[in-house]
Design a protein around this nucleic acid. Structure first.
Lengths: 211, 211
DNA sequence: GTCTATAGAACGATAGAC
DNA sequence: GTCTATCGTTCTATAGAC
């Protein structure tokens, strides 16, 4: 087997560029040039740009969601914080395993997750429901069982808020540094986990609004 | 003066399409066709596509940020919730004044704010700092003075989390409906304000992590 | 499985008539 | 201020040699 796999090389370059520029703004020409492979290789290995996008996302999402399931299953009589951690930590921890992007901002895995959450081409809609639907239901059910002061409507909304906080942090950590005038960075993944968990637990713990 | 201003017509169409598809994925051809104006009109009135993007954003951001400033100034010895409301309500209220997009999802103003927060073409970076920098500093200072259990680092991060929760809610409310299997929509703007405020206040109120 | 070459369409932008 | 026409570029995707 070759030491550098063309398919993997393409996925790496695509991940970096999608994170930096978004899916629509990244062309296959730019991508294959960065990966130092031939332009036609993308269509040969993935069929189309759309399928490449899915492959890039799937490579990261699958192990993270598997870990989320594993951790949720391992909890018996969990606290609110246990559940929030089971959801957030697998995603935030995975970031440590990837290097920074070429533009010197936060790393590729981090920012592509932000992209995933917001830039939703229509061809990815079914993909998202497939990848996150069942898992989201399980987390919302667990949260609702634990935080007895909120109902299903509250639990879903707060889950949504939490995903937004996570995604924005992953995607736009550099903006925080820039706008705060350097007063606040978000580079230490371990500290970021604790900050986000504290915030989300506080949010989930607030008195329900719907009921 | 004409009853339908070309410039305004272009801004309206651009706002809708940018919200639905993102900036990069929306072409001037599609945009001018939707607006029923000539292709050349965009370059005549705005100079370039990049400048059009800025104009679309500025039209909405300016009054909202002005209202945020006004409300923050009006507060004396504010509570945490007062400050959070002063930040969130102007944005969420403005949504009620715009109609839905053509794809039947949440409305254009709502979703373009989500776009703004995540899809950050490099030419918009200075624009963001200019539009939000001073205001963000003022809010963070106010928050830190009120929530005495958090330091500057905590305050900045939690402000960032809150922006993410807000943006994701505005941008992807339809995803919530889809993934929850209809168990939760996010259509009532007034209820959404209360939900988001409750969550954010809970988040800000959590014990600080940095210190 | 990797390449060159190119088809075929869409892009942003502009020149110049009216 | 609005139009047509078009320039020059870039795009995704594919056909076909090796």
């Amino acid at each position: 087997m070759p030491t550098t796999d063309t398919k993997e090389t393409i996925l790496d370059a695509a991940e970096t560029l999608f994170a930096e520029q978004g899916f629509a703004a990244t062309s296959l020409r730019q991508l294959t040039q960065r990966a130092e492979v031939n332009l036609a290789a993308v269509n040969y290995h993935f069929g189309s740009k759309d399928e490449l996008v899915k492959a890039v996302l799937l490579r990261r999402i699958e192990p993270i969601n598997a870990e989320r399931r594993r951790r949720l299953d391992a909890l018996s009589s969990p606290s609110l914080e246990d559940i929030v951690r089971a959801f957030l930590e697998p995603a935030l921890r995975a970031i440590d395993q990837c290097g920074p992007t070429s533009d010197g901002r936060s790393n590729g895995l981090a920012r592509i997750f932000g992209r995933v959450t917001v830039e939703q081409p229509s061809f990815l809609r079914a993909f998202f429901t497939e990848q996150f639907g069942e898992l989201a239901h399980r987390f919302v059910t667990a949260l609702q069982a634990t935080a007895t002061n909120i109902d299903a409507q509250d639990a879903w909304l707060r889950m949504h808020f939490t995903v937004g906080a996570m995604a924005h942090t992953l995607q736009s950590a550099h903006m925080l540094t820039e706008i705060s005038g350097g007063a606040c960075g978000a580079n230490d993944a371990e500290a970021l986990v604790e900050q986000l968990v504290a915030y989300a637990v506080g949010g989930f713990d607030a008195k329900g609004v719907s009921q």
